[in-house]
Amino acid sequence: MGNSVLKLKKSDSAVPLLTLLLSAGVFLFAGSPFFAGGKGDRVKVYVDGKEYADFPLNEERDIIISGHAGLNNRLIIKNGEADIVDADCPDKLCVHQKSISKDKETIVCLPNRVVIEIEGRTEGAVDAVSR
């Protein structure tokens, strides 16, 4: 085997550069929660891509969401934050994700096909642009 393939080449730097460009592109395309993270207003729950429920973020709530294939996620809305605290899914990645409160932030449970999404006031966004 030629040893040249085993040493770091200058051309290798193209990969991290393209990665950074692509990451920046995705952020701009999808609307980053870090840049556009206005205050959230409502908690929307989607199951299988369809809207399942819609709650105000400022009211305390403790809900069991029945996801895909009858698996459940427990959603708690408290202190202006939404969080999944328990789930029947096998990997529990949704439980480990941080609680969300800002516009466009999401918590996803892939096995149960549940998406929790925060929505802000659209009027607020228009105001911010016109200012």
Partner: peptide
């Protein structure tokens, strides 16, 4: 999941 917002996990 049929939700394109997941793409925000990509960066």
């Amino acid at each position: 999941v049929e939700n394109y917002r997941i793409i925000l996990y990509l960066p």
